[in-house]
């Protein structure tokens, strides 16, 4: 039992289960999945489908956070990638041509890779703190996205392009497969090779990692590039979903939701150990929460209040200090430094 509670997935899963249970009690047909026109429909499918972009962004964020970094620019990259793809398609002669859609996707992906590379170079090359380095692109990126769309909302009607966000494969939304593929790639790269170990090592102790002979520069650049790629693909899904690009609002607050998902998933903001599965569950929790609030019939804007409490509760649960404080409730004396040091004694 104790080992079960200690497992890193225990708390995220417990929270998610509680949320789902609440939904089940509130609306008994929450779990029902129906087949219509060969497609599966149901709240669970919706959560997976609508949660896809967030899961993607959060996956990228996980490896960045594991290196003791943070990528604030993902929301802007989401907007830029969607804007670029839609602009390209809107300029094309035949919007329905698959070639055009592929070119647009390729272009957007290349661009988001380049933006990730920019972040990576600032962090590893110039040695700027990640939160600051990515703040630059977060601020400027919104402007760039609006520059691409000329401040307008670009609407497109491209069948091949809309497949990414709205199409379905084997009765399931296509976006789920995109997420699964990216998750598979990430898991394979980090757990089947030594990349994951290197990321954790660099995140935990960069100086020692250098002396161990790990090329931390390469590790850092690759995590930011990966994060850029994830955000870019998420941008494609989002813009394809609504068949339009909005430089101003696409991907707004995604960085925060993604960080939240990562933290809920059990990865510490201090770098080191990271949990991809935890992150996916974290993102699903956030999406379920949004859906739940929608189901209850509360205005969706109020999700923010609930999110605020979720952030706090999750962080408090994960905070060792908090748990110790509860445990040491009865010890009356206050020696602030003691608890901290006790761990090392």
């Amino acid at each position: 039992m104790k080992r079960l509670v200690r497992h890193h997935l225990f708390w995220p899963l417990a929270v998610w289960a509680a949320l789902l249970l609440f939904n089940l009690l509130y609306s008994p047909d929450f779990f029902s999945i129906v087949v219509r026109n060969g497609h599966l429909y149901g709240s669970l499918i919706d959560i997976l489908n609508f949660g896809a972009p967030l899961i993607l962004v959060a996956l990228g964020m996980t490896v960045v956070i594991a290196t003791e970094g943070i990528d604030l620019s993902v929301g802007s990259v989401v907007a830029i990638s969607g804007a670029m793809a839609c602009l390209w398609i809107s300029k094309g002669a035949d919007q329905n041509s698959p070639g055009l859609a592929f070119a647009a996707i390729g272009l957007a992906v290349l661009l988001s890779l380049a933006l990730g590379l920019w972040n990576g170079l600032l962090v590893s090359g110039a040695g700027i703190q990640p939160i600051i380095a990515t703040l630059i692109l977060m601020v400027a990126g919104r402007g760039i996205a609006q520059l691409i769309t000329s401040g307008q909302i670009i609407t497109i009607s491209s069948k091949p392009y809309s497949y990414i966000g709205t199409g379905s494969l084997a009765a399931l939304p296509f976006s789920i497969f995109v997420v699964a593929a990216m998750f598979g790639i990430a898991a394979l790269l980090t757990r089947r090779t030594a990349l994951g170990l290197f990321i954790e090592s660099v995140g935990n102790n960069p100086r020692a990692s250098r002396l161990i002979g790990i090329r931390s520069r390469v590790v850092l650049i690759s995590v930011y590039v990966f994060s850029g790629l994830c955000a870019g693909i998420a941008g494609l899904i989002l813009s394809s979903n609504v068949a339009s690009a909005d430089g101003n609002n696409a991907g707004l607050w995604y960085e925060l939701d993604a960080i939240l998902a990562v933290v809920i998933g059990g990865t510490s903001l201090n770098g080191g150990r990271f949990y991809l599965t935890g992150t996916v569950i974290g993102a699903l929790i956030i999406q379920t929460l949004t859906t739940t609030i929608y189901v209850i019939g509360v205005p969706p804007e109020i999700t923010l209040v609930v999110k605020a409490f979720v952030v706090l509760v999750v962080c408090l649960i994960q905070s060792e200090t908090f748990r110790n404080k509860i445990a040491e409730r009865w010890r009356t004396r206050h020696y602030p430094a003691e608890r901290e040091v006790t761990r090392h004694a």
């Binding site: 939160i131 925060l256 960080i259 939240l260 903001l269 605020a308 952030v311 962080c315 905070s319 404080k325």
Partner: peptide, 11 residues
């Protein structure tokens, strides 16, 4: 509770 300011103020 020694939680990062970033997260608390985000909440």
């Amino acid at each position: 509770f020694k939680i990062q300011p970033f997260i608390v103020t985000l909440a």
